[in-house]
Amino acid sequence: MTIRVLSPGLLTTVQDLGRVGYQKFGVLASGAMDTMALTVANLLAGNEEDAAAIEITLLGPQLMFEQDTVVVIAGGNLSPVVDGVAIPLGRPVYIPAGSRLTFGKAVSGCRTYVAVAGGIQVPDIMGSRSTYLRAGIGGFHGRALQAGDVLEIGVATRSWNVHFKNITKVGVLPWGASHELQPIYRDHAVLRVVRGPEYDFFTEKSKQMFWEKPFRVTPHSDRMGYRLADVPLSLTDPLEMVSAAVALGTIQVPPEGNPIVLLADRQTAGGYPRIAHIIRADVPLIAQVKPGGLVHFTEVSLEEAQELYIQQEYSIQQFKQGIAGKLVRRD
């Protein structure tokens, strides 16, 4: 059970929900940039939500499936095609042996996830299969995929026989996740944030602009962080900060004034003032904004943010149960 990489695309890596519990050793969390898309792709493929899948960035790879495979693509719409047939996002797709999956134009979003029934089989390093590029560990040999790589697929725990019977060509099931779990990605994203510990140390003008002005996502944005431009922010007085842990979604402001949003490959600690944090429920949205796109921040309270997190988690668990009811466990 393998997938052969014919061409790698821009940055194609194996990711799961990230490496948990090792940040105290300086080990990055890594993991999917859009954890919601990865979760949805995995659940629709009959996997656990944290199975390893392929994260694709803007320019997709060409992948050859060397046996019949059930695949789910979710996240940004990078125009996936199997042997000339356009494939819908967020649906279980049966791909016969020898088929090629390719991608085209980035219609919406910039990251998409290819989950396969059984998951991508790579070694578990410190509790995760995510690629940690800087350290060269995890994922597929600790690096982005290259032409000629052969990925192993794990054994699916659920059976697709009832759903894809006597099928010889590409087939699609009309299953899908709700709008809440599969949001529409916009190049002008509105992101909800809670205030950061140093919010009050910014000038009145900076605070006002932070809520009112759109920030542009620069091309220097990557898995580590999104660098924003167009709205420089300043402190009333210089602040002596002691390095401390940072969080996923933290918006920190270095002295030159352009904010950086910390994402999956963030360092484990930092020492810049933190004006705000994107709420966890909205972090997947910024991961889909392309360089050149705009983001706008709007405030919610900590209580609202946690309520939204809980609602999202309920929706995921409900969706997971729905899928479990459709797919019987293999013996």
Binding site: V20, G21, Y22, Q23, K24, V242, S243, A244, A245, A247, T268, A269, R280, L302, E303, A305, Q306, Y309, I310, E313
Partner: peptide, 22 residues
């Protein structure tokens, strides 16, 4: 608690809001 990160003068505890509120 999901994990904690000790630093010079702080300990940051990451938690799952589904299990515990602030």
């Amino acid at each position: 608690m999901i994990e904690y990160v000790p630093a010079f003068t702080t300990v940051t505890v990451f938690y799952n809001p589904f299990l515990i509120r602030y």
